[in-house]
């Protein structure tokens, strides 16, 4: 049984022409896999390494650097919500927003709601400081966010952009 679907394998292979070597596809491949499976399993790493002619440790080395990718023991929920804690957001209530959301959901940053609906993350500057405090829902920014809006995201079908 392959950990990667034929579609993902094909998509990875379709990137071969973009770069002069295959190792450069590491990051795109990790993104593809995490997007499809909510994590990057050990088996998936082996298959990525195989497709890119690398040792699996090289893939893991790169993968763990970013703190963005999850292994199979820490899969993501349906939505991944990042709350910004950098200076611009801190100055406009980012810390309180995060603390309040954590308290109300009984979550710590990095954890997922028990129903798997939402993973809550700490973020460094999201690049939307004009709308502080801001959050990122999967890869869509939401500006000038309040506690209730984040809490709504934790409910099934909650939130508008997911």
């Amino acid at each position: 049984m392959s950990a990667l679907s034929p579609e993902i394998r094909e998509k990875i292979i379709s990137y071969y022409g973009r770069y002069p070597n295959k190792q450069a596809i590491t990051l795109p491949a990790l993104h593809m896999v995490q997007e499809a499976y909510n994590c990057v399993s050990r088996e998936a790493i082996n298959e990525i390494a195989d497709l890119l002619e690398l040792n699996p440790t090289q893939v893991v080395d790169t993968m763990t650097f970013y703190g963005f990718f999850r292994d199979e023991h820490h899969p993501l929920g349906k939505k991944r919500v990042w709350v910004c804690r950098s200076l611009s957001c801190m100055l406009r209530g980012g810390d309180e927003l995060l603390a309040e959301v954590c308290d109300r959901l009984h979550l710590r940053p990095g954890q997922t709601t028990p129903d798997g609906e939402m993973t809550l993350e700490l973020a460094e500057c999201l690049g939307a400081c004009d709308g502080a405090p801001c959050i990122l829902i999967n890869d869509e920014l939401q500006l000038k966010v309040g506690v209730e809006e984040v809490l709504a995201l934790a409910k099934p079908q909650g939130g508008s952009k997911s």
Binding site: R42, N55, P56, T57, Q58, V60, D61, T64, F65, Y66, G67
Partner: peptide
């Protein structure tokens, strides 16, 4: 043979094997 690698980053990075 590339068994050893660095995991994580910054002050919490470590040497690791799979």
């Amino acid at each position: 043979t590339a068994e050893l690698f660095v995991t994580s980053r910054g002050s919490v990075e470590e040497i690791e094997v799979l």
